[in-house]
Computed example of a mutant assay.
Amino acid sequence: MKPIFNQPKTSIVAALLAIFLFASCTSTQEITYFQDETLENYEPIDFNTDVVYKTNDKISIIVSSLDPEAARPFNLPTISEGQSAIVTQGSTKMQTYLVDKYGNIEFPVLGQIKIGGLGRTEATELLKTRLKEYLKNPIVNIRLINFTITVLGEVRNPGTFVLEDEKISLSEALGYAGDLTIHGRRDNVLLIRDNNGTKQYSKFDLTSISVLNNQSYYLAQDDVVYISPNKAKVRSSSYNQNTAVVISALAVIVSLTAIIVN
Rank of each mutant, 00 (worst) to 15 (best):
Q35M: 11
S24M: 04
F34Q: 00
F22A: 08
C25S: 02
D36Q: 13
A23H: 13
L39P: 09
N41H: 14
A15V: 09
A23G: 11
P44C: 04
Y42T: 04
P44L: 00
Q35P: 06
L39F: 15
I12V: 15
Q29Y: 12
E30S: 11
Y42S: 05
E43I: 10
S27A: 03
I12S: 08
F20H: 13
N48P: 03
L17H: 11
S24H: 13
I12D: 07
F47R: 12
L16S: 05
A18H: 05
Q35G: 11
A14H: 05
P44A: 00
Q29G: 04
I45P: 05
F22C: 10
A15K: 05
A18F: 12
I12E: 01
S24E: 13
F22V: 09
I31A: 01
N48E: 10
Y33T: 07
T32G: 02
L39C: 11
D36T: 15
L16M: 15
Y33I: 00
I31P: 09
E37H: 14
N41C: 12
E30N: 01
C25Q: 03
L39Q: 14
V13C: 01
D36I: 10
E37Q: 11
Q35N: 12
D46F: 12
I12N: 02
Q29E: 13
S24Y: 03
E37V: 12
T26L: 07
F22Y: 15
Q35F: 15
L39N: 02
L17F: 08
L21D: 05
E43Q: 14
F20R: 04
L17C: 05
A18C: 09
D36Y: 06
